[in-house]
């Protein structure tokens, strides 16, 4: 690990004031310390934001505001979250381990980096880690990498479960930074790799996430399901966050977000549009899933994700349908 300076921020504005090139914000550390030890992250300065007073979960009208420093375990255990956004609790509980969830923050969860083997190994090329060095995953191990929205430069996936649920719930990410405050609607925080895979998100240098705000829960039934070959403590092969509202046999509302298929949580808008106004039947769900996945561009070793995602969409919606 490269030597670095360490400072604890007193407030969000203090954190931003301390930001200079080479600075990184330290939350729970569960991914940043990991990446520093691998030599993937090489900050000159850490500004510790883990103890900022951003650790409350509080209602704002019919919305719910989650502080950026709320620990994942506290988020999942919160009575309001469990009652109003059970799918969100499920997504958080599906991630990592009990001890990691005790440490990891909401903002840190959203900003975790891909688990692509090449990204994590500084002795191998990676366009995300070293732009222009190449993407060996396309010819090599991409078995758990992207089938949607990838580019010739990068086929990484985003590993967060939380982000998938937030994408379905249309949460807003509150950011402060050198350029002032702004609000980013999910899934807009994360971007597709294009020709700049080094950028996971739309955040600018020095930006600090201060909160995530949830709109009132959408009507209908919701679910989060994560598929993995190890029964726990594993990143998803595919995950889904879904909300389905059926009135008189007709789909009046539907939201589907997919995880581990793309560089960002993937809102299945084509599938949603195909379903809304139509019948809530298995055939309709299958058609919608296939409409969405027609965009998939699988590689030889991750082609299984397409039928897996299709099955998962259909099965999840069938379970949610009345």
């Amino acid at each position: 690990m490269k030597p670095f300076e360490y400072a604890r921020a007193g407030s969000p504005s203090d954190a931003v004031r301390r930001f200079r090139p080479g600075t990184m914000y330290l939350g729970g550390g569960t991914n940043l310390v990991d990446l520093m030890r691998l030599g993937v992250a090489r900050p000159e300065r850490l500004v510790d934001v883990s103890r900022l007073p951003l650790d409350a979960i509080e209602p704002v009208g019919d919305r719910l505001r989650i502080g950026a420093a709320v620990r994942n375990s506290d988020l999942a255990a919160d009575p309001l979250i469990r009652r109003r956004y059970p799918m969100l609790a499920r997504a958080v509980l599906a991630g990592a381990s009990g001890q990691v969830r005790n440490m990891a923050t909401v903002a840190g969860n959203l900003l975790q980096r891909t688990r692509c083997a090449y990204f994590q190994d500084v002795s191998r090329p990676c366009n995300k880690r070293r732009p222009g060095s190449g993407c060996p995953a396309i010819e090599g191990d991409h078995s758990n990498l992207a089938v949607l929205g990838a580019s010739d430069a990068c086929v990484a996936t985003h590993p967060s479960d939380l982000a998938v649920a937030l994408a379905a719930l249309e949460a807003e990410v509150h950011v402060t930074g050198p350029g002032g405050d702004r609000i980013i609607p999910m899934p807009g925080l994360h971007r597709l790799p294009g020709d700049a895979p080094e950028r996971d998100t739309v955040l600018e240098p020095g930006d600090l996430i201060t909160a995530v705000e949830l709109p009132a829960p959408p009507p209908g039934a919701s679910a989060y399901r994560k598929v993995r070959e190890r029964a726990s403590f594993a990143f998803a092969l595919v995950s889904i966050a879904a909300v389905l509202d059926v009135r008189d046999g007709v789909v009046s509302g539907c939201r589907i977000a997919l995880g581990s298929l793309a560089h960002a949580p993937w809102r299945a808008e084509r599938a949603e549009q195909a379903l809304i106004g139509g019948p809530a039947t298995g055939e309709a769900f299958l058609e919608a899933a296939e409409a969405e996945l027609a965009q998939a561009r699988p590689l030889p070793r991750n082609a299984f994700k397409v039928p897996l995602a299709r099955n998962l969409i259909v099965n999840t919606l069938e379970e949610l349908a009345p």
Binding site: R115, A117, P136, G140, R230, A231, S232, F233, A234
Partner: peptide, 29 residues
């Protein structure tokens, strides 16, 4: 069901060289 180290044909050596990628059974399994 889960254990597998990949050989890196392009660069040599192994891939999945940690316990997040080389899965051994967890308690839940």
């Amino acid at each position: 069901l889960m254990e597998e180290t990949l050989t890196d044909e392009e660069f040599g050596g192994f891939l999945r060289r940690d316990l997040a990628q080389y899965h051994v059974p967890a308690c839940a399994d």
